[in-house]
């Protein structure tokens, strides 16, 4: 029997993973760039929560909004300063750039804050337990699910019913042609980075919330999750990322239960081995998207 607790946990974890994956795919879809700096946007939001929550009297909800906004802003800045100048060069130059930006932001946190982790204050209600459908779980998990549903609906509306959304989908399909229709390249790319940062920021609230602490390397694990989820779901569509996130959440929880204690430390290796196998068997992921592999120049 699968307990309702398992279902709630899996849904909550899957939701978080879906958001993480979605943020990566927004940029990938348009630029075909696997953005290694993505995890650092999450770190930026985490440190914002820490600084504002610890040193200022700003209420927690405003802190969270500011954290998300700052993550989006930093994401936009990295696009403006680092990615835009190399965009017309080569895909690998962009890839190496994203890795360098990631290292840069991590080490800025190391240098200017501390290598040690910092406690992040959260409202106590966040981690109180509630009972839903017979399952006892922290409020945070329920919030994760609800937030994800709201965000997914909002993003769907944005992508389907606004010109900007349609233009972004068009750009992900055929970038140059989209420009020929008068859609500015910089606009869609910037919006993609802002949305990516925004999602990283929201994820950060729940991710940091689980341990109530932040450290310079906090972005690495979510980055890997985004990789795995997008590979499982498919890099070429936003739906694929969401599906991949939930499948990965399920896989992760299932492996945690099923692996014997002696092998549990190898869980990550198992996960990645599954991913590699998956890639070899089905390189396009579960969801085949309509996006082409056209490079952005």
């Amino acid at each position: 029997m699968i307990g309702s607790e398992f279902i709630i946990n899996t849904l909550s974890l899957g939701s978080l993973y879906a958001l993480i994956a979605l943020g990566l795919v927004f940029v990938y879809g348009i630029l075909k760039l696997v953005n290694f700096a993505y995890g650092e946007y999450l770190m930026v939001a985490g440190y914002t929560l820490y600084v504002l929550g610890t040193f200022t009297p700003i209420p927690w909800w405003l802190t969270m909004i500011l954290a998300v906004a700052l993550a989006a802003f930093v994401s936009y800045l990295t696009e403006l300063i680092a990615f835009r100048p190399v965009r017309t060069k080569s895909l690998d130059a962009m890839l190496v750039t994203s890795f360098a930006v990631s290292v840069l932001l991590q080490n800025a946190a190391l240098l200017f804050v501390s290598p040690r982790s910092r406690a992040v204050p959260f409202p106590p209600a966040f981690s109180e337990s509630v009972t839903v459908f017979g399952a006892t779980t922290p409020v945070r998990n329920i919030l994760t699910i609800v937030t994800t549903v709201i965000l997914l609906v909002a993003l769907t509306l944005l992508m389907k019913y606004t010109v900007l959304g349609i233009a972004m989908r068009a750009a992900a399909d055929k970038f140059t042609t989209t420009r020929l229709m008068g859609v500015p390249a910089n606009l869609v790319i910037s919006v993609a980075f802002i949305l990516s940062g925004l999602l990283a920021g929201v994820v950060s609230i729940f991710w940091v919330g689980r341990s109530a602490s932040v450290d310079p390397l906090i972005g690495f694990a979510p980055l890997l999750i985004a990789f795995i989820a997008t590979v499982i779901g498919g890099m070429h569509s936003l739906q694929g990322a969401v599906v991949g996130g939930y499948v990965y959440g399920l896989l992760f929880n299932a492996l945690s239960i099923m692996l014997p204690a002696s092998l549990i430390n190898y869980r990550d290796a198992f996960m990645f081995a599954i991913v590699i196998l998956f890639l070899l068997l089905r390189p396009e992921g579960l969801i085949r998207g309509g996006y082409t592999e056209e490079r952005v120049g």
Binding site: A167, R169, A170, D173, T177, M181
Partner: peptide, 25 residues
Amino acid sequence: SLVPEGREIFTSLSVAENLRIGAFS
């Protein structure tokens, strides 16, 4: 305005959305 070689329709967008992008500017 260019009608590109090979038509370059946005295949994942609906006809209406294709036209909407045409009117973007």
